[in-house]
Amino acid sequence: MAILIDERTKVLVQGITGREGGFHAQQMIAYGTKVVAGVTPGKGGTLFGGSVPVFDTVEEAVNATGANASVIFVPAPFAKDAALESIEADLPLTVVITEHIPTYDAWRFISHARRKGKRVIGPNCPGLISPGRSKVGIMPGSVFERGVVGVVSRSGTLTYEIAYQLTKAGLGQSTVIGIGGDPIIGTGFVDALEMFNKDRVTRAVVLIGEIGGNDEEMAADYILKEVRKPVVAYIAGSTAPPGKRMGHAGAIVSGSEGTVAAKAESFKAAGVQVAVTPDEVPRLVASSLKKTSA
C-alpha cells in the first residue's frame, strides 16, 4: 500500500488538450499511471495521444471509464469550475495543479469538498507520487524510488531535491505529496500525517515546511499527540527578510510568527528531528529507521 494513489488509481485529466495538461498526461502515462480519460468541454469524442478518450464533462468520463481521481490543469480563471465539477461527480480525489487561482475561488471549492467528504490536494501544487505505482501531477518520476519513507511538502522543487537525496541514499518513498504553497489548500500537513500514520508501508515521514503561517506548528502538535513513527523535518526560509514574499504566497514572515526558528522549536518539542541542511535529511531518516527496527 501507499496513501491516496496506487496501481489501481484511474486518473482523468481535466484540461488534457491544453499545453500543460497534454504534456503532463503523457509524462504520467510514460510513468505507468493509468490515465483513463481526459475532459475538455467542447472536445468530447476525440482521442488524446491516440488512446485516451476525451469527454465534455467529468460525469460522462466517470461513467464511461470508472475514473477515481482527477488532476486539473485548466487555467486559473476556470479552475474553480473544473474542481467543483470533479467534486460534484463524487471523485474521491481531486488534485489541482493550476497556480494563481484567486484565494476566494480556492475557498469555494475546498470548503465544498470538505462538506462532501472528498479530498482535494492543492491548488498550486506538484501533485503526488507513489513511486513505482502511480503519479498524479507533475513530479519528475526519475528522482523517486519505491520504499518506506512518506514525504509531505509545501514546496515543489525542494521536494524533488530531498527525494533525490533520499533515493541516492537508498531510502525509497511510499508516497510523496506536494500540498502546495497557497494560503488556502485542500490537504494540509496534519491530513497527510494522519494518512501516513495509518499506512502500513510507511515507516518514517519527512515533512518539508517553509516560513509563514502556522501549519508546521499545528503539525508539531498533531505529531506529539498521535504520531509514533519517526518524523524528520526540514524548514526552508531562515534567510527570508520579514514582510517579503519569497515566491510562494504563503511564504511571508510577519513578526516572530512563521519564522524557521519558531517552527523548529515546535518540532523539537514534539520529538521531531529537524535537519539544518537538505543533505542531513537522509542521514536522520536512516538513523531513525535503524532505531525503530532495532
Binding site: G156, T157, Y160, G247
Partner: peptide, 8 residues
C-alpha cells in the same frame, strides 16, 4: 528553480 529550492 522553484521557490522552495531557491529559499533552501
Amino acid at each position: 528553480n522553484g521557490a522552495g529550492l531557491t529559499m533552501a
